[in-house]
Design a protein around this nucleic acid. Sequence first.
DNA 1: GAATTTATCAAACGTTTGATTAATAGGATC
DNA 2: GATCCTATTAATCAAACGTTTGATAAATTC
Lengths: 220, 220
Amino acid sequence: MRNPQKARVSILDAAERAFAELGYGGASIRGIARDADVNQAMIHYYFQNKDQLFDEVIDRRAGAVNAQRNDALDRLFAEGVPTLEELMEALLRPTIEMGHDESRGGSAFARLVVSFSNSADERSRNMAIEHYDPIARRSIAAMRQVLPELDMAAAVRAYLFSISVALSVMARTGRAARLSDGLCNDSDTEETVSTTVAFSCAGIRALAKQAVNQFDENVE
Amino acid sequence: MRNPQKARVSILDAAERAFAELGYGGASIRGIARDADVNQAMIHYYFQNKDQLFDEVIDRRAGAVNAQRNDALDRLFAEGVPTLEELMEALLRPTIEMGHDESRGGSAFARLVVSFSNSADERSRNMAIEHYDPIARRSIAAMRQVLPELDMAAAVRAYLFSISVALSVMARTGRAARLSDGLCNDSDTEETVSTTVAFSCAGIRALAKQAVNQFDENVE
DNA sequence: GAATTTATCAAACGTTTGATTAATAGGATC
DNA sequence: GATCCTATTAATCAAACGTTTGATAAATTC
């Protein structure tokens, strides 16, 4: 009965690392308990079972980052219609910054999300539907407001492409450094944000143009 | 001694599905054996242990797709320096087509690669180094040949961004369809290739321009 | 057609898994 | 200081895990 809050948090932290590194099936309650320095039964005491523990691991970070993104959208559209660059930075920065903040799970949570957002099993689908579809729909609508020539299908693709780029830089596997002989530093947050935003915006505009061209071809 | 070839292949197929859906730790030899309709011991007879089974699952597809990509590069540069669009299509098409070909693992292998290419554990790093770094280095060099203003760091980022987009569409989780109310069809191979190439090329050119601008700022 | 190799099987190995239990310690409340 | 709720512990459970075994059937070799 020493410190229930601290126990809860250190279990969540350890679980986050374990799920990220080993996957859901590979992570073990025993290993998590050892890593968190708590008795094994404490995990069931606080989180009932492995499934709910996993849910709370996701909840904690996804809730925070999506609140940030929603706030940024609110602020942006309060002053009229923003530029595409402003919009995409508002959407991608919170994700990338969390991936760079070790006090908030850092790249471990990022790898966890990347891995599950590209899976098709039921647990993954439920996670996407519950935690990421709402902000996705709002973002897609916002993109079309900023870039009206973007049709629905193109906007959905553009959003998913952009997110997949942001998640991959958030995951920070060290591969960029390896392939560039250390020239590429994936822990510089500002450079990563500006690079990711530049890449995404150019790509999105290309998809918008592609849609317009297809339309032209059809009417000719 | 009925059909060793068929047994091997059906084990590999079942393992591919299992690893993709459940992760390395979540997939079980027992489950794979059941799914492949072979005795559990056959898996150890053919593949020694779980680790080597995993390796061979990756080997089979990665070897095939990378051979295709290398061939495409050979052909492309035999006739001089190609356009960026030609280069990126040569690199991305084999990946995307494999993700759409159910007779070659389809989206299961894609999800497997996505998940492991964004992980940082030793198994994942070894997989990337062994199977994907060589073609990555060659591709990055080719990109810089096509677009000389792309510096090394930008080229590495551009390549990793493009690959992450291609992998995400290859994974086909059905999310695009869900978010677009069925408007977005992620199983149309040609549309996916052209969209992915268009997005990537525009993004890459933006990174090249960004590098030039930074250079301008420095000399001013 | 005997000897040898390859392929397959059912059963068991010891270990680890997620989960539960019964007992207990710590602080607060009365 | 007895009561009570919260927090924590060690011990235990059945099930599932990866792997090994010994036996056997089928094919190949000589």
